[in-house]
Design a binder for these strands. Sequence first.
DNA 1: TCTCTTATTTGCGCGAGCGCAAAGACAGCG
DNA 2: CGCTGTCTTTGCGCTCGCGCAAATAAGAGA
Lengths: 232, 232
Amino acid sequence: MTDRNPFPDAITQADVFSGLGEKEVSCIFGLGRRNFYGPGAVLFREGDPAVTCYLVLAGRLKLTKLHEEGKELLLRYISAGQLAAAIALFAGKNYPVTAQVVDRAEIISWDHETMMKLLMAHPRLAVNMLRAVIDRMEELQSRHLELHAERAEQRIARAILRIMNQSGRKTDEGILIDFRLSRRDLADYTGTTLYTVSRTLSSWEKQGWIASGRERIVVIDPHALMLFAERD
Amino acid sequence: MTDRNPFPDAITQADVFSGLGEKEVSCIFGLGRRNFYGPGAVLFREGDPAVTCYLVLAGRLKLTKLHEEGKELLLRYISAGQLAAAIALFAGKNYPVTAQVVDRAEIISWDHETMMKLLMAHPRLAVNMLRAVIDRMEELQSRHLELHAERAEQRIARAILRIMNQSGRKTDEGILIDFRLSRRDLADYTGTTLYTVSRTLSSWEKQGWIASGRERIVVIDPHALMLFAERD
DNA sequence: TCTCTTATTTGCGCGAGCGCAAAGACAGCG
DNA sequence: CGCTGTCTTTGCGCTCGCGCAAATAAGAGA
């Protein structure tokens, strides 16, 4: 993120750009708008007309879907190199989710017409996006199955392992999950409640599998969690 | 489906082909293989290497995902004009679901390399597929939210309404759901059990909202079901 | 350092709906 | 027309985990 290297390799080589030439990528980037957002900022809200697609350059978003007063579902986190709101390609749609910044984030965005022209000009880009969406579809299908078939504690275990794999940072204590993650977030992500998550984490902490503080989790024994998630 | 009109308008004008010329469509069709399948036939099984994409010309498929002995989730039905297994575009993947024929079905299929070439040659096709996948993603997200936030009976109401809208046929009794749909299927679709579905349908039958028999449901009062699904 | 706010823990009771079991209904087939 | 397998119904008990309430802990800001 220095001035000399405005688009780090990690981004220009993001999955959505694989197979595209350097020139094509910089042309695509040139048509987008870059912005910074602080923690808690809302990129778009569920129900708003979908007019803009986003690519996260740095930081992290969370996508949520609302249901009545207070109840919400945390659908997924979007981290650097990933797209959000592919839906905005298609005119006349509304965002089906709300996107909120977790950490401070840098984001590039394209409006609907621009992105559609880019897709028609670069079939490879369309195919890459198709792949990204299909991958997410698969993940969501798996979580849907878990929600249907597994007990609350197992879903919590899987959620922690999934988030750990995506965003874990190794420390001498164990694998630290590197952003604010409250009991409430985990509950919204796993389809349980704050209370159940808290009770479960407490019991794992007593067993020495994890260490946890306020909005902070360190996984000490991932293997134990895996076994727990897999067992009948 | 006469000899003179091997691909009826309903199919050649399917959403995935919108915006493509007649010549392009017939070229795409020419590269596929057509087949008939009987009820219960399995097109592909979860975990098999994904090598072929399918488009349903007539009939109906169901996509399911397995979890342990006997437990399964019914992800969605695929009816005429819809694609299945877009995942097969990408080498080295496995089918994440099982596809089974419900009624007798006619299906056209393309292997992985062919479809990938078609996508690169016809960006419009790629964009249409992207749209189809995104639409399904949205539907799955909504169902995921329901599974998380609503009680079993409300989810069953929504499921019946959704299936009714997709496949209802008007009769003098009410709106008939036009294919074999067992209590077990509904349970797998809504994430409940056969028992809960049976109890719920019985109670609605007593209220006169529906009529039901073995693997058969007629919706008499859709409005009552809607109100029931929406209420807190 | 003190205060205020927000996150977390834990006890307790309750209700939705799961799941077994057994009986009843219906379709298909010879 | 009766047999057989499958689908459906319904009673009953039990468990998971929700959800309130109240206490406690941990940051954030002045």
